[in-house]
Each structure stands twice: as C-alpha cells, then as structure tokens.
Design a protein around this nucleic acid. Structure first.
Lengths: 217, 217
DNA sequence: GCGAAAATCAGGAAAATCCCTAATGCCTAA
DNA sequence: TTAGGCATTAGGGATTTTCCTGATTTTCGC
C-alpha cells in the first residue's frame, strides 16, 4: 500500500530536496505541496493523506496552528514537524498540537524516510537532540504552565494574532480571512483583553514567545 | 586610590548582590545605582566614576544605548556589560558600543572584582564562554554586515524605536522624552522610512533582533 | 563660521482604533 | 428540549492616531 504524503514548507528548495528523496521510495507518493499552513489545510481535505510533513514556521498560518486544525478534523493523519530551530517553545507547542514526529532540518535526509515509516506504524519519532530539549524543559518551567496561547485564545483569535504579529494591517487581515474589518477589530480587542496587553509591540513579543510567529520575515 | 563605581541593573536583587560583594573591597566604592539606562547616564554626569557596571537589557533606555552615550561624553569611563544571555547579538552590540568587558550573570561574583581590576588597567575582560561566541560569530555573518541599527539610525531614532518596541504609545514616549507628540511622530516616520518597515509588529521584531529590546517585559 | 544633518514642532486630512451594541450558530447542562 | 454561554460575525459613531507637508532651531564636522 502506498503512503500518501503532503509537503508543507515555505522554502521551495526544501520542498524540492524532500521530493527528490521521497520519490525514490517506491511505496511513498507526494500528493500535494503547500507553501503555507492554509494551503496545507486545503490539500489535506482534498487528498486525505497518511502523512503531512509540516514546517513549523510558515507565513499566514503557521505549522503549529495548521497541525491543530488538521488533527481536529482528521485525527488519523500523522504530522511530522520539520524545523530549523531546536527552540524548545516550537518543539513543545508542535507536540502539544498533536504532531507525531519532530525533525530538525539539519538531520540527514534519510532520517525523514525512517521517521515516516515510524509514524505510520502509530509510533512517534523525534530527531536526535530534540528529546534532550523536551526533558530539560519539562523539568523546569513547563510542567504545569498551562497558560499558553493555545488554552486562552480561540482558534480565530490566534489566527488574527499571528497575522497582526506578522505586521499585517487590520484591513489586510480582514481580506485574508474573508471577514469584515469590524470582525477583525473585535477579535483583536478580545485578544488584548484576554492577555491584558494593549499594544501591538507587546502582542508581537507574546506571539513570538508562543511560537505563533518568528523573528524572521 | 579608590575606584568609583556605578551600578545599573533593573533587578534590585542583582544590585544588592553586587553591592554586598563590592563593599567588601576596601578600594572600591559604589557611588550610585540606577534601574535604567537614563538614570545611569545622569549618575555618570554627577559622579564621573571610573567604572560602570551595566546590564544589557533595561527598560526605557537599554544598556547598549546608554553605553554609547556615556562613552561619547566620557571616553575614559570603563563600562562592564553584565547580561543573562550569551546571545551573540547582545555581546557584539555591547562591545561595538565600546564596553570594556562582558560578564555573564551566571559567573562567579568574584569574577566581577577581577574584571573591574582588569578594565581599570586599560585592558578588557570577557567572561569565559563569551569569547567563543565572538569567534564563532565573526567567522560567519558579522564580518562585514554593518547595516545594524547603530549605523543607520540616529541616537534619538533608536531611543524612539526602543520605546515603541516596549509597547509605549506615541503620547507616553513624548512625555518620557520631554518633547511634543509631533516630534516623536517625525522620528517614527523617519525610522520606518530608513528601515522600509511600516508596521509596529515588524519594527518590534527588528528591535529585538538588534538587541534594542528583549522578548521579556 | 557654514552647511548639512538632526531634532524639534504645527495644522489639517485621512485612516485606524475604541466603545457599545447585537445577531447568528453551536454546544452543553439543567 | 430549552436556556445560557461562548465563538464568530458585524455596524455606527466618537475618538485617537497616523500621514503629509512644511518650517524652525540645534548640533556637529570641516
């Protein structure tokens, strides 16, 4: 049986590399490619793949949020996170969102094949080094700190927050989400109230700390 | 001869610890304490100390900027940077600003005494580990990348940018700098033009990358 | 000193934000 | 099954901020 795979990464070169590698495997087939989370979401609905290779930080809709939404609708899909940073916040948020694996981008390409085979067998796969991060972090701050963005904010609110933190104006956000400016304003207001933060600058910092957006881009 | 010292750190506990340690040295005297860069600046004018112990990230006016301004007026003053993070951006910007030493906060307190004695003898002192960072970084990205905030923006513009990135409104910034709102607006506009960035969110990210503000606070 | 750059400020138009209100749909507990 | 809570959507009008243009004073290097 063929394993259907979707690639989601905003760097074309990365996608090319992965595609080349994976097409060499006779029992794997890439059925779709996305350069942002929103497209990935749509492709999953279209193709119901077994596995999604998901970059953590992507513009528009990030990998963490995309993973949450995919798994809410398709709990059987296996998501493997792929990231440059071994930043613990990203790793933890990604795994909290339900990812089955976490790979660092500097790992050997062959590792990805191994990871895919592992997760389709209902197991999980972590890059060497990632598990260390987990242990260190669980031991310290994160054990019961459950006030992350993912428990206080609604899905829509997180979306709006991310877009704000990416520097988009209310107008642009409204367009992108296909709702009125007023709605976006309402969400932003709600986010600010919930977090007790009333400036875009501090909202941006919060979003970065929570892994909703990154310092780059 | 007594070495006059000024402490600038926004954490009271840190200042207390340092004070306790340094008062044990018969030839050293703390002549002033500040919890932000602006106060530090004023204290230097008042006391013309030999040494300033300067935290890198402080609210209102950060340690990097404060160091620049102090050394512009008092080139003989020795500034020793003190920081939690061994983040290379902070280290490099601090040293570019003219600091004579860089200590990590997790070093032994006795190291500070050693550092002070070293810098007053016209030499420099780096925490073990900091020099590694320098070498690694100079080798890679930083060799000629001179488009940092410190070469494009004026002093005033950096001040305004930092305050913006701390979430302060134009109004508050104007108050704090004792100028009119219109002036702050003009500076912000200028900053945005120079950087080609036109949203507070992205300005904030830029400021973080440049070490003008930190993710906390 | 002199010129360029920096820092300061004003007025009015345009845009974004804030505050209040409210309809709709969905889920849950009584 | 119905009432209530929450998420999402949205409008109107007041308020605030931003944007654009232009101008004066201050500073600083040569």
């Amino acid at each position: 049986m063929t394993i259907k795979i979707i690639l989601a990464d905003d760097h074309q070169i990365v996608r090319q590399g992965l595609r080349t590698l994976l097409t060499a495997e006779p029992d794997m087939k890439i059925v779709g490619e996305a350069d942002n989370g929103r497209t990935a979401l749509r492709l999953v609905q279209e193709h119901t793949p077994e596995v999604v290779i998901m970059d953590v930080s992507m513009p528009d809709l990030n990998g963490i949020e995309a993973t949450r939404q995919i798994l809410a609708d398709y709990p059987g899909v296996k998501v493997i996170a792929l990231s440059m940073h071994s930043d613990s916040l990203f790793v933890l948020n990604m795994l909290k969102s339900g990812a089955s694996g976490y790979l660092l981008k500097d790992c050997a390409l062959e590792e990805l094949v191994k990871a895919i085979r592992t997760v389709v067998c209902k197991k999980t796969y972590l890059s060497p080094g990632v598990s260390d991060i987990l242990i260190k972090d669980f031991a310290s701050t994160w054990s019961d700190n459950n006030s992350s963005a993912f428990s206080i904010l609604t899905t829509r609110e997180r979306e709006v927050l991310q877009l704000m933190a990416e520097g988009k104006s209310t107008n642009v956000i409204a367009d992108q989400l296909c709702v009125s400016v007023k709605t976006v304003e309402a969400h932003r207001k709600q986010v600010m109230n919930k977090l007790g933060i009333h400036s875009v600058a501090e909202l941006t910092k919060y979003a970065i700390r929570q892994g909703l957006t990154s310092l780059e881009n």
